[in-house]
Nucleic acid binder design. Structure first.
Lengths: 225, 225, 225, 225
DNA sequence: GATGAATGAGCGTTCATTCAT
DNA sequence: TATGAATGAACGCTCATTCAT
């Protein structure tokens, strides 16, 4: 619901209708949260619709009232997480005026804030949504494409600011994809495979340094090797 | 079965017993191949034991004779793919005498050879084995740890050869993990999400360049930024 | 509601109460029509209460205000259709002064008018209400009994007029049931299984001829064989 | 399985394989019988797969091993009943050398033997399979078409033997359909709605008389009216 | 009277796994 | 060893019905 609609509703809807709508929104979120937690904790397969309903303290039917099916639950979650990630990374990048530091800050934001605050969301986007079904895979692709697209745009703008250009036609995109890959596997490893969330600060900084070096190397002219 | 055992068998086993053993080995491989293809094509969940048995032209019972259960099938596949990957990457690295070029060659090997020749194996290690069960996840971790360990070793040796050292205690490991992340997502994107297998050469080269730059940046003293 | 009540209401009820009553009646009919269409088109099972409510542009609750349950909806429909059928057939029979021609006209009326004008009603009485539940089946029996009874009465009266009598104790009833069976299957076949609604005139005439012949044969004395 | 195949099997299959096959066939029939009884007694909807499995003393999975789904169970039943009906009616007709008496005998066979011996089969073909799903409806149509076709053929052959011809192009078919309708509704009424199975002999005879009269009336030239 | 969100029992179906032969 | 029929727990989903507002 956009802000505009909200205002419209406030004008046109009765008090009780407003409350009902609020409750609806709330229930939707409660169910989604329950699903998020269970998918992350038990795995998408093992988390049954009944478990989710129980966790959200509603009936199975209610879950199906708000979501088309189990897959839809996962997709909505995916969409929400993707949206949030883009917002966080994008806003961080803008703050630092489109320089290489933007990548630094966005990376730190991701590792230090997002990963430590929302490990469940990371689990869902990087683990529980992988290889589940053609439909989910398609949505994943779209979300990753958008994220990669954001990074790509940033890359292009920074390179223009610095007066550099990329080596091959693919270069910039490959770099963007690579950066996403680093985010993904580093988060996965230290969050799910080693539980080093306390060290996420150092780890994140190292990963970001690696990224910065990699980017520099892709600009024509002044390679390091 | 190790080489040593095989030699022992050749000595002790009768001709017919040898033949039987050969057939056993063959069947094991046939089933594994069938599973690989179906897991990659249909997805781990959708590929039923019956489908696998049919594809391998054996009975369901036979599959259970050679493999403990469906999970075991996935794990054996994972193990085999991990083993192969390590061998390919490691041998490529050794060829070029532990220099930065080793990373280049290993990377090219992965993108140009492995990905294009064995997309099913890539699908299994990077997609179908993700988030399937605690047991599988544990094995995945082990396999990725070994691969990361190899990269880490190479990194350390190269840095020693070059007289460099890594910034933080994590640094080298994070770089290794990052490299794995790049391999993974770049392969995933261009193999499953865009079908650019013809361009894998250029893409691989770009990814490798990015990696080399990133590595250089991690050495103390001569950062690019 | 009988005519008598309506008159009472007109006297006692206020204008606004009358309007409300009219609206009530209208809604009842709207819902019933929606159910009729959906039952005929989608089938009794597939047509959900929500679909019916949507089609009638009311809420699910409203449907339950006017009808006890889904079964009731079907029963009311059945009742209405049965009533209409009896009226049409009966009035046609009366017009032609209780002769064999009455059967002719009634039959033609059914095939040429009723079937072509109300295929949905035919679908419900001959298809969608079959084997649905003991309660519905009981109502179906009652309705068919009444229809058969009408035919039976006509048969008896015609035979008396002609000075004939029926062979066995069952005879007349069996003939009546047989006539109903002919109506049913001929309509079913050419309406739902072959879509020959344009030819319904010829088909109806043939069916009626068959019936007339059959009836004649049941009278003692002058059989054809 | 045809007789020929059976002989082949006896030659090629081992004793144990033969026994296994026999058991398979037996199980298939046991399940089908259980379904028949429950569909007829409880109704298609109410009879759940679990109930059927329990009645057949097998597991739910076994039912799904032998039949694709619940619909398939109904279709197989329908097919078997249709086949049996055709065989019974056809053989009876052939016995009496293609005269009007053939219709008499076939009718008596149906009412006196089939209806009284297999009321469940009658219930399924005339009640439980009606309006269940498009697929089932299609099969029903095919089966009724075959039955009607048989009657039609008989009708044509008898008319040729008697040197008569039918009035209109539709005539003969409509008569065939009418006969089927009489069979259906008379059986339905006296089997399910009045439980007069003891009187089925008289009832059947009356119905057949009606049919014979109807047929005669359809021949050109010598109508009764 | 009217609404529509919520309920939850019930059902069809799947499929990994077992085991008698 | 190999077979494949049999098992049965588990799960996703539907939908008639209710009831607070």
């Amino acid at each position: 619901m956009t802000e505009k609609n909200k205002t419209d509703n406030e004008k046109t809807l009765s008090k009780s209708a407003q409350r009902r709508q609020r409750e609806r929104e709330q229930r939707y979120q409660t169910i989604l949260s329950a699903a998020e937690e269970l998918f992350a904790k038990e795995g998408y397969q093992k988390a049954s619709m009944e478990m989710i309903a129980d966790a959200a303290e509603v009936s199975v039917g209610a879950v199906y009232f708000y979501f088309k099916n189990k897959e839809d639950l996962l997709i909505q979650l995916l969409e929400e997480i993707g949206f949030r990630l883009r917002k966080i990374l994008g806003s961080e990048f803008k703050k630092t005026g489109e320089s290489l530091d933007g990548f630094k800050n966005a990376g730190q934001m991701f590792f230090e804030e997002f990963c430590t605050q929302y490990p469940e969301k990371v689990a869902i986007i990087f683990r529980e949504s992988v290889g589940k079904s053609p439909v989910v895979e398609e949505r994943r692709r779209e979300i990753f494409d958008k994220l990669t697209g954001d990074v790509l745009n940033a890359l292009v703008r920074v390179s223009e600011n610095l007066g550099h250009s990329f080596k091959s036609g693919f270069s910039a995109e490959v770099v963007a994809v690579s950066i996403m890959g680093i985010y993904e596997r580093v988060a996965y490893k230290y969050l799910f495979w080693r539980e080093s969330s306390e060290d996420m600060k150092i780890i994140g900084r190292d990963a970001v340094d690696f990224i910065i070096g990699g980017i520099n190397n892709m600009f024509n002219g002044e390679t390091c090797t």
